[in-house]
Amino acid sequence: MKKFGKKVSKFMGKQAVKVQLALSNNKGEGYIDTAVKILIAVVLGALLLAGLYALFGNIVMPTLSRRIQDMFNYAG
Rank of each mutant, 00 (worst) to 15 (best):
M1Q: 06
M1S: 11
K2Q: 05
K2H: 11
K2E: 06
F4H: 10
F4A: 04
K6L: 01
K6S: 03
V8I: 14
V8N: 05
M12A: 13
M12Q: 11
G13M: 07
K14W: 01
K14S: 05
K14D: 03
K14C: 05
Q15R: 01
A16C: 15
K18I: 07
V19P: 03
V19S: 07
Q20D: 01
Q20F: 12
A22D: 13
L23T: 13
S24R: 14
N25Y: 02
N25A: 15
N25S: 04
N25T: 08
K27Q: 04
K27M: 10
G28I: 14
E29D: 09
E29Y: 09
E29H: 02
G30K: 15
Y31H: 14
Y31E: 10
Y31F: 12
I32R: 10
D33V: 13
T34S: 10
T34P: 00
A35Q: 11
K37P: 00
K37Y: 04
K37E: 03
K37R: 03
L39E: 10
I40S: 08
A41K: 06
V42K: 06
V43L: 13
V43F: 07
L44D: 10
G45L: 15
A46S: 04
L47F: 15
L47N: 15
L47T: 15
L48H: 08
L48I: 12
L48R: 11
L49R: 08
A50R: 11
A50H: 00
A50K: 01
A50D: 13
G51N: 13
L52M: 12
Y53A: 13
A54E: 02
F56Q: 05
F56M: 11
F56C: 01
G57I: 08
G57L: 01
N58F: 09
N58L: 15
I59F: 14
M61K: 15
P62W: 02
T63R: 08
T63I: 12
S65N: 06
S65Q: 09
R66Q: 13
R66K: 12
R66S: 15
R67L: 13
I68E: 00
Q69D: 15
Q69L: 10
D70H: 05
D70W: 05
M71P: 00
F72I: 01
N73Q: 03
N73H: 06
Y74Q: 05
Y74T: 10
Y74R: 02
A75N: 14
A75H: 14
A75P: 08
A75Q: 15
